[in-house]
Nucleic acid binder design. Structure first.
Lengths: 150, 150
DNA sequence: GATATAAGTTTAATCATAAAACCAATAGAT
DNA sequence: ATCTATTGGTTTTATGATTAAACTTATATC
């Protein structure tokens, strides 16, 4: 691949986010973590990912503070990977991806997994709103760039 | 890479979404498209992406129906790439990524670009709610898997 | 104490990406 | 109308990320 371009210095928050979780597997691992998985072999079986890649992805997710690794038993070497508070802040990203997939990537009658509200057993909504509560879409918004220094 | 595993057949909508826009560049191109860019050279200058890779990404985004390519001038060969209605449905994904980046990937005083509501000039909110309007987080929800056929 | 499973690491082959050179078509200047 | 620069790519070559499989060590199970 010749050293994937890093977006770490970019002033765009989306770019930095993609720099951290924009690779092929990280968000799939995070999805499974939201689904309750914690162990190496669970992720491996669920995703069919190569073990070395899974090990590296888990390592970088831990480095970035999205997952925390804790020994399963005191004194043991086996680890459990759990979402941190920061990791749980990826929830809206997962919900947004899911909604997009549901809307556009399934045939009309094709079955798919669903994200439901535990209390009501009903699907959840995702809304983007202005401060005053108006729903806003892409054409109602604007990206304001940061001024170049100098 | 040895043939990246395709998630096309997965029953999880997030997985299918990542199969379409989960690679390194697609969402960055979509971000720029939301920002008003339409031309090959604009994307290329903005992202610093290799030209062959940009050409392929644009092609697959068009194939998937996220971008539409139209000639700039009738009879000409130069193309303009614009978000389709489907492409604009990626807006919540972009907003969610941006919010995550803003919250966790910038130093306290570090400047970053902002997404603002055109009308009020204020940042937008993203909420996940149950049908009855309650705000819900990851621990309030559950993924319901589709039954295996057979 | 023997066997199986978990959680990786190492190794080798393959394929995607990046960078740069190349090329045709268009737009602008003369 | 012709020369030149820019646009929008394609081709070529190298590099390295990803994969699969074999290997290793530690932990559970019988």
């Amino acid at each position: 691949m010749v050293a994937r371009k890093s977006l770490k210095g970019d002033h765009c928050p989306s770019a930095r986010a993609l720099d951290v979780i924009g690779d092929w597997w990280s968000l799939m691992i995070v999805r499974d973590a939201f689904d309750g998985m914690t162990r190496f072999s669970e992720f491996q079986k669920s995703l069919g990912i190569a073990r070395n890649i899974l090990a590296e992805r888990l390592r970088t997710l831990v480095e970035h503070g999205i997952l925390a690794a804790e020994p399963v038993a005191a004194g043991g070497t086996r680890l459990e990977y759990r979402l941190t508070a920061m990791g749980k802040d990826l929830f809206p990203v997962m919900v947004a991806l899911r909604q997009f997939g549901e809307r556009h990537l399934f045939a009309p009658q094709e079955p798919h997994s669903r994200l439901i509200d535990r209390a009501a057993g009903q699907p959840v909504r995702l809304d983007i709103r202005a401060q005053d509560g108006r729903a806003v879409g892409p054409d109602d918004t604007l990206i304001v760039k940061v001024p170049e220094p100098g």
